[in-house]
């Protein structure tokens, strides 16, 4: 190879890296703008100056309650949950090399949700205990699905179908717990069935923040190995990746992210499923999709919640909006994937 062609390759590489950086910055800017807008807009408009003063801790008549007590906790929860779902979903999709293998389709979100609702309604737990319960159940479901779809190796199609079955079962368990609950509350039921950030309190976001730091960090530290898994197990092993160890770490991290967020917001429909494919579309499929997918997830939940609250004829939980958005995309994916014969 001549020096000139090496230069061309290097130049192309630099261009791609710069493009990636630009896209990530653009997504970040979009997220920050969206966050700022949701603090200002609502039933009434709050000027940016008032919002900033509330955030600084000053007492602004009227704005302190709407911004500080209602909009801020809600927006923070939406962003953190979106980051978790986007990150966890992308990790599963990359690891299993199939966009359909996202935790909300194969039942892991349902498992976490079922455990959370059981812990809250039947065992009367709250706070961190619920999160731990949800993570344990998420891991259990992941293990079960993996085991059930095992037959001389795990085939993607079988894993997805087994996951759909497990998911149906867990959803009916959620309905069972809700029926047994002493007080039937529509809003609460919606949370555990489709996901919602209604009634958010700042304290609720803390476990999600911690889980993002721990599990998100774990996932990021495995980013290179996860990237290698995309080439297939054998190639990844040849490149020096411990395939099994990487898998186990990635599953723990991704399930942790999904489950802790689900324990607070419920399984917000299809955010985990949609984020990485949308990120890949903006971003190109090269390079690690984890950070872009997390950002896309946060934007989706934030925007979906705003749309559900203010732009539709009635107030909807965010899961209804993302659910209505995600299902056509799922159909599109089925049509397209099979046209190319994949």
């Amino acid at each position: 190879m001549s020096m000139a062609s090496v230069d061309i390759v290097a130049a192309g590489r630099i261009r791609r890296v710069r493009r990636r950086a630009r896209v990530v910055l653009a997504l970040l800017a979009l997220l920050v703008t969206g966050f700022a807008l949701t603090l200002m807009l609502g039933q009434s408009f709050t000027p940016p100056g008032d919002v900033i003063r509330v955030l600084m801790g000053h007492d602004v008549p009227g704005a302190t309650f709407t911004v500080g007590q209602l909009r801020l906790p809600r927006a923070v929860l939406a962003v953190l949950a979106g980051l978790s779902f986007g990150l966890g979903g992308a990790a599963f999709q990359i690891m299993l090399r199939n966009p359909l293998a996202s935790p909300d389709i194969i039942g892991i979100s349902s498992g976490a949700s079922a455990a959370a609702v059981f812990a809250i309604v039947v065992l009367r737990l709250d706070g961190a205990a619920v999160s731990i319960f949800a993570v344990a159940a998420g891991l259990g479901v992941a293990l079960t699905i993996y085991g059930l779809s095992w037959r001389n190796g795990v085939a993607g199609a079988r894993l997805i179908l087994v996951g759909i079955g497990v998911s149906a079962m867990l959803d009916s368990f959620i309905s069972y717990v809700l029926v047994r609950a002493p007080a039937w509350d529509l809003q609460e039921a919606m949370r555990w069935l489709t996901g919602s950030v209604n009634g958010a309190r700042l304290g609720q976001s803390l476990p999600i923040l911690i889980s993002l730091l721990i599990f998100g960090g774990l996932l990021m530290s495995r980013s290179r190995d996860l990237q290698a898994l995309r080439l297939g197990d054998d190639s990844a092993a040849a490149l020096g990746t411990h395939v099994t160890r990487t898998r186990v770490m990635v599953i723990i991290a991704a399930v942790g992210l999904i489950a802790v967020a689900t324990a607070v917001t419920g399984p917000i429909a299809f955010v985990a499923f949609l984020s990485a494919p949308i990120a890949a579309r903006i971003f190109g499929s090269e390079g690690s999709l984890l950070i872009p997918a997390a950002l896309v997830g946060a934007v989706l939940v934030l925007a979906g919640d705003y749309v559900g609250q203010f732009l539709l004829p009635s107030r909807y939980p965010v899961g209804v909006v993302t659910g209505a958005l995600g299902a056509p995309y799922l159909i599109f994916l089925i049509v397209r994937a099979h046209r190319s014969g994949a």
Partner: peptide, 27 residues
Amino acid sequence: GRGGATPLKLALAGVATSVAFASLVIA
């Protein structure tokens, strides 16, 4: 697409449609 109505494709199409419709029912 290729292969006609395989069990996987039909089941997925059905589940996706079900989820979409369930969302619309709530809406």
